[in-house]
């Protein structure tokens, strides 16, 4: 495990991606809380229409507006926004074409949904456009309204396409308001203000997908940030027992003797169960270690988050945020 870098501290847009099922949304929320710790104001954004943030913070679905959803230690606050492409398109139409009322009618007809499916890139351009607007927005004092924006982005398989606005725009109009604004998005996403973090698990497939994503990000000239390793299980076994146990050759008599010392006189069946549990644990830990070694190839700062046996609730998010703060996130 390494720690957060100076460079990452300077980023204002933190994009969080990862293989499906790795806990991307949970990690994005914990990161937002960690960044807000010490009195900063952070916006957590989701773009996939899943209302994952609302579920995580155990509250009603988020409307298309920025709501304060949590306080962070030291007076910080986390706001949340669920961006939806249709609403973003309507926002543009209203802004540039004075299409407020008609826009709503068209939405009912399904025309907006249609326009955003017609050009698959359009949806992404609209979503990233809204994110850029949030990152750059300033308050009355001329300072940025949000100190940082955390984006719960699409999974690794789709994230580069999602962020590669230049490519999406190649298919779209060469002039007009969206074109102008997308140039600003491109500048932001490829600048030092943006870091793309990848959530991984210490299993072979998620690690391979993470490495592929790093290469793909590099290829698209996007900046990989940190690898956030989620659900790391504790290693219980003494280091010298681990390889032996993983081979299934656990010294049963020693375990039995140890248990006796502790006053546990277990029947054969229970003892066998304990041995099997231990062997499984050892195999898992060993494959975690192999995966961690493979992950080392990425050469990125790598932060580990513990597996929470009780599951993830709001309190657990604060616990994970603390781990991130301890690893230098700010």
């Amino acid at each position: 495990m390494t720690s957060w870098t100076e460079e990452l501290t300077r980023a204002r847009l933190h994009v969080v991606s990862g293989k499906g099922g790795t806990g991307k949304t949970t990690v994005a929320a914990a990161l937002a809380l960690a960044l807000a710790t010490g009195g900063r104001r952070v916006l957590l954004v989701e773009v996939e229409g899943r209302q994952g943030i609302a579920q995580l913070f155990d509250r009603a679905p988020l409307p298309y507006s920025e709501e304060r959803i949590a306080s962070a230690p030291g007076g910080g606050e986390v706001h949340a926004l669920a961006v939806d492409a249709e609403a973003a398109l309507l926002e543009y139409l209203a802004m540039f074409y004075n299409l407020g009322f008609a826009g709503r009618t068209l939405r009912k007809m399904g025309a907006i949904e249609f326009a955003t499916t017609l050009a698959p890139g359009l949806r992404d351009v609209l979503l990233t456009g809204k994110v850029k607007e949030c990152v750059n927005r300033t308050g009355p004092d001329g300072r940025h309204l949000y100190d940082a924006v955390v984006l719960d982005a699409p999974p690794t398989g789709r994230v580069v396409k999602f962020l590669d606005v230049t490519k999406a725009m190649a298919d779209l109009a060469k002039v007009g308001p969206i074109k102008g604004q997308s140039e600003g998005v491109v500048r932001l996403l490829h600048s030092g203000d943006t870091a793309v973090h990848l959530v991984a698990l210490l299993e072979e497939m998620p690690v391979r997908e993470t490495l592929d994503a790093v290469a793909e990000l590099d290829g698209a000239d996007l900046r990989p940030g940190a690898v956030l390793v989620n659900r790391v299980q504790p290693t219980r076994l003494p280091a010298r027992s681990l390889p032996v146990a993983a081979e299934g050759r656990l010294d049963e008599s020693r375990v039995r003797a140890g248990l006796k010392t502790a006053g546990l006189d277990l029947d054969e069946f229970t003892l066998e169960g304990l041995v099997d549990e231990t062997v499984e644990h050892a195999i898992r830990v060993r494959s975690q270690q192999d995966a961690a070694e493979l992950l080392g190839q990425s050469d990125l700062p790598t932060l580990e988050l513990p597996d929470l046996t009780d599951g993830v609730d709001v309190a657990a998010l604060y616990e994970l945020a603390e781990v991130l703060v301890a690893a230098g996130v700010r």
């Binding site: 076994l237 003494p238 375990v255 003797a257 248990l259 502790a262 041995v275 549990e277 231990t278």
Partner: peptide
């Protein structure tokens, strides 16, 4: 005395 047995017990509790 018995670090191995202690580890076995803890991972069982997990």
């Amino acid at each position: 005395d018995a670090p191995l047995a202690a580890a076995v017990l803890r991972l069982h509790a997990d």
